[in-house]
Design a protein around this nucleic acid. Structure first.
Lengths: 151, 151
DNA sequence: TGGATATATATGGGATAGCATGGTACAGGA
DNA sequence: TCCTGTACCATGCTATCCCATATATATCCA
């Protein structure tokens, strides 16, 4: 499989380590970098996560901009400057940096939410609230999925 | 891995030495020149940094301009004329020349900001401001990374 | 079908190596 | 000879590796 699916809640030990769900690790198998990349979510008190190949893709897109241009600079600062690569240990765990833990408000448990090509990490209680919020947004606005994304 | 990612703040000792983050050094591994190239940022009180091979790419991009044109001349002067190659010592440190330290306003700490294929060096407090500025620029201008890479 | 065994996942703790940092010795140039 | 810059050596801390254990799931055999 190569998509991040479903939600897993794992414990954070006193070293800040947390197991990445086995299914997520399977989705990342075969990548050059054995780990994940995390970045603060701009919209939520949560962390966005994906594999190294995604960073490569973002880098390629960034190369389309003129080097030293304002747009290139803004995007690179906000995206690459804030992205944190975290490699797996032998047991498939990562160590969450304290700044990221504080940003997401996680303390002793982290909820991994599969979102297809990416995933998010939430404080479990905050996630519950977010989920009901998302459900009602879909209902109220009548949101649906478009036919297919190009590319 | 071969991309500069995330932000590291390192101390500058009284000799002007500062450790290049281990992850950045890893991104530079395998290059012929064992060190980095720094130039003054034209847009910010900061320094632009990259590996030696990037100089070749800059050279190629510069070839897009008419040689002997004013633009080519200006850019070549600013980029190649001002570029400072700094080699690593045995511990992966570089010595920042005082002119560059003054230009970036760094004194006892330097923030290394990963930006994909290049990085920047900032005075930590100035960087914080720059980061929030970049975030709001992205929000206000609706900047995104284009989905499809144009050849 | 049910129980027992094997495999994989999640979790915990201790040992070790790498990194960031500081200092000293040496060499080359003024 | 002095001074500046470079190479080498030393150290504390932190992160990474490695081993151990519990729980859950899957498999196998009676």
């Amino acid at each position: 499989m190569s998509l991040f699916l479903s939600t897993h809640i794992n414990r954070i030990d006193k070293k800040g380590r947390v197991s990445v769900p086995a299914g997520f690790r399977a989705a990342l198998a075969g990548q050059s970098f054995h780990g994940v990349v995390l970045i603060r979510s701009s919209a939520h008190p949560a962390l966005e996560g994906f594999g190294w190949d995604m960073m490569h893709e973002l880098s390629n897109r960034l190369d389309e901009f003129d080097i030293f241009s304002d747009a290139q600079d803004d995007l690179a600062t906000a995206i690459f400057g804030e992205a944190v690569p975290l490699s797996f240990d032998g047991e498939g765990r990562i160590v969450l940096p304290v700044e990221l833990m504080e940003y997401a408000g996680v303390v002793e448990q982290a909820a991994f939410v599969g979102m297809g090509r990416k995933f998010q990490i939430w404080e479990p209680a905050a996630l519950k609230e977010r989920q009901s919020q998302a459900r009602s947004a879909i209902r109220d606005k009548g949101l649906t999925l478009p036919r297919e994304a190009r590319g």
